[in-house]
């Protein structure tokens, strides 16, 4: 069983929900990322999503676009992101790590070489935004053969047929995009998330993580009441952007925000 499934099952047994931060690899500079990942683990996160910078992040809002641009300015790439993953794994063999990005860097590397490299780097899941299952079975099979979970997105307008398809091809967890829009958008509708997550549950046994639009501890707590995991990205990256002259301050604010989310999520019903 993959490290992701083990972690999510253990959480489910204790009734806790997964806190899943997303940060862009190499933002604001490459040496910042691995110490931040370790600090986030100490702050109580369960899974880390590491964004692979891409020149044309079509599904991302301005905050994550600029994070990509900062990282690319430091020559960050898929290969160097895998090196950061490897470095993280040297001292952490337990926290699952998911790479999230776009297809073209993987195409450039070659699917098989990428799958091998991801396995060597100790990566546990791959979420490729612009690779729907129709086009992605070859890549998904290569990953699954190496105990890496291909993670797929579902959206508010996904049909039952789509949900069933993701349940078949996906593993690890399903990532429910809480709104029609790009990352960091501001119009999260809790009632519709509740309805849709309930619909997903009818068609899949996979854990469901919800992201896009989670900004603070209160939202994290509400989402944790509906889903198995809460993904927070743009809100963290905003801390980096707000403290470009002081990365240590950025790290401190990220950890504080995650710690407040952890606390709120662990006092569900309180």
């Amino acid at each position: 069983m993959s490290r992701l499934s083990t972690t999510l099952e253990a959480l489910a047994k204790t009734g806790r929900k997964a806190l899943i931060p997303f940060v862009t690899a190499g933002d604001p500079y490459p040496e910042f990322t691995v110490p931040l990942m370790h600090a986030m683990v100490v702050a109580g996160v369960d899974i880390i999503e590491l964004g692979v910078p891409f020149s044309d992040p079509m599904a991302d809002g301005p905050v994550i676009q600029r994070a990509s641009e900062r990282a690319l300015a430091h020559k960050m790439s898929l290969r160097r992101t895998l090196l950061l993953a490897l470095e993280f794994r040297r001292t952490n063999q337990t926290t699952p790590l998911v790479l999230m990005g776009y297809l073209n860097p993987i195409e450039a590397m070659g699917y098989e070489e990428f799958a091998n490299a991801a396995q060597r780097a100790g990566v546990d899941g791959i979420l490729t935004v612009d690779l729907p299952p129709e086009e992605g079975t070859q890549c998904a099979e290569l990953l699954k053969a190496r105990d890496i979970d291909p993670i797929f997105l579902l959206a508010p307008n996904s049909s039952v047929e789509r949900i069933q398809k993701m349940d078949t091809v996906g593993s690890g967890y399903l990532y429910y995009v809480s709104l029609k829009g790009v990352t960091g958008a501001g119009h999260l509708d809790i009632a519709s998330v509740q309805t849709k997550v309930a619909e997903l549950r009818l068609h899949t046994q996979l854990p469901v993580a919800v992201g896009f639009g989670v900004k603070d501890a209160a939202t994290a707590k509400t989402i944790a009441g509906l889903a198995d995991g809460v993904v927070v990205g743009s809100a963290l990256i905003s801390k980096i952007e707000g403290n470009l002259d002081s990365p240590e301050q950025a790290k401190k604010e990220i950890i504080e925000l995650l710690a407040s989310m952890r606390l709120a999520m662990d006092t569900l019903g309180a």
Binding site: D56, S77, E107, A108
Partner: peptide, 22 residues
């Protein structure tokens, strides 16, 4: 250029060795 994926389709692209669009 070389084949890759951008804007919803696979085609020839101007990209670097890392797959970033140039």
């Amino acid at each position: 250029g070389r084949p890759g994926v951008l804007h919803g389709n696979r085609t020839y692209l101007m990209a670097d060795d890392d797959g970033e669009i140039i």
